[in-house]
Nucleic acid binder design. Structure first.
Length: 378
DNA sequence: CATTCCCGCCAAACG
DNA sequence: CGTTTGGCGGGAATG
């Protein structure tokens, strides 16, 4: 008798055996998935933040996180107060391309002329790529308040998340590194060349948030370094990205295991075949292997998202509390996206130039995104 | 023990 | 002034 296992925070079982918390159910990744399922459908034009918060049953704060990172990739666009407009995945290619060009430009600029100069990293999410309407974007509000916060051009705003996301993505797009660990990323784009300390810690925390969201979108996937078993993320980007450049070697290692359904915070447990031990030391001659590639009009992204695949989740339930707790299982499984995306053959020709890359990258990044934050009056 | 990362306080940025 | 946005870090859950 008395085999009650629970008894913790269980005040009156409201007719449901809710799980004892379960952190995964509240992860940003899952929330993002639900968010997408809710809005990635034709007909959706604008999204109300509070509306989303209510429907998803989370605090407003969390919505901001998701929305910010999605905006960085072009899926959403800030329309105004409390309102975002849905751009969809069709807008992603363009956004990514922009980021790529942007990042490449910065690199070349720095790498080029030895002069210092630099300054400016230029990033901004004010991507007015909308070629629709002339809207004057009432954003650039120059003159930040009269007589206020004049000193120190440290932008008090847009200091993270949005920019961090873009920089993080740029890192993948502009480098040959296909796999990056959050730790490295944090160190590289902490937006400065300071010594790591607590700043990095915080940065990493943010990076985790971003990574979770991007994983949810399947833009990246959690893996681990070929050699080291350190957890890292691999860029998947769109799908039909034949990569390019290194056509030599690597012969398509047969169908890859690009499987949908991984996400969530942990992924994998799959035992990677361990990369062969063909590790050849990279020549210390080429630091940073920038992805020098021409434009590439790889876009060809899908057409509207037709993912009407609701699964077990998000029934747009009540506010909170009294959660019906629908099943409470992983709701990962949206083949809807699978149809949208196509399997890609990514020949990871990554050897192990991490050390070099990291250092090199650090160098130019320090200059490029170095302190000297552009004081664009945003 | 180390890694992952949620929660939410509380301050800038608007209206 | 109130409200919307969202840095930032503690510290709990997880591996």
């Amino acid at each position: 008798m008395s085999s009650n296992w629970a008894g913790y925070t269980l005040s009156v079982d409201s007719g449901s055996k809710d799980a004892p918390y379960c952190r995964k159910q509240k992860s940003l990744g899952l929330l993002c998935t639900n968010f997408l399922c809710l809005y990635n459908r034709e007909g959706v034009e604008t999204i109300g933040l509070d509306d989303a918060a209510t429907r998803l049953g989370v605090e407003r704060r969390r919505i901001y996180d998701i929305v910010n990172v999605l905006e960085s990739v072009g899926i959403l666009a800030r329309k105004g107060k409390n309102r975002y407009s849905w751009k969809g995945f069709v807008a992603v290619p363009k956004a990514l391309d922009d980021l790529k060009k942007d990042g490449l430009r910065d690199i070349g600029q720095t790498a080029d002329s030895g002069s210092e100069k630099v300054s400016d990293d230029e990033d901004e999410m004010c991507s007015d790529m909308n070629n629709l309407s002339q809207n004057e974007k009432s954003d650039s509000n120059s003159v930040p308040k009269s007589g206020s916060q004049p000193k120190l051009g440290e932008n008090r705003k847009e200091k993270s998340l949005g920019l961090l996301t873009q920089n993080f993505v740029k890192l993948f797009l502009c480098t040959e590194m296909n796999t990056i660990s959050l730790d490295e990323a944090a160190k590289i784009l902490l937006g400065n060349g300071n010594q790591a300390s607590m700043t990095t810690r915080t940065k990493v925390r943010r990076l985790y948030d971003i990574a979770n969201v991007l994983s949810s979108i399947n833009f990246i996937e959690k893996t681990q370094h070929p050699e080291t078993r350190k957890p890292a993320f691999r860029w998947l980007g769109l799908n039909g990205k034949p990569d390019n450049g290194t056509k030599d070697s690597i012969v398509a290692s047969e169908s890859n295991k690009r499987l949908f359904g991984t996400d969530l915070t942990n992924t994998t447990a799959k035992r990677m075949k361990t990369m062969d031990n063909a590790k050849q030391i990279r020549k210390p001659q080429n630091p940073i292997r920038v992805k020098q590639e021409t434009e590439t009009d790889d876009e060809r992204t899908q057409s509207a998202g037709n993912s009407y695949q609701f699964g077990p989740f998000a029934p747009a339930n009540v506010p909170k509390i009294a959660t019906s707790q629908n099943d409470g299982k992983e709701a990962i499984d949206w083949e809807s996206f699978a149809s949208t995306y196509k399997p890609q053959y990514h020949n990871q020709a990554l050897k192990d130039l991490f050390s070099h890359y990291v250092e090199a990258l650090k160098s130019w990044y320090s200059e490029v995104a170095g302190k000297n934050p552009i004081q664009l009056m945003s």
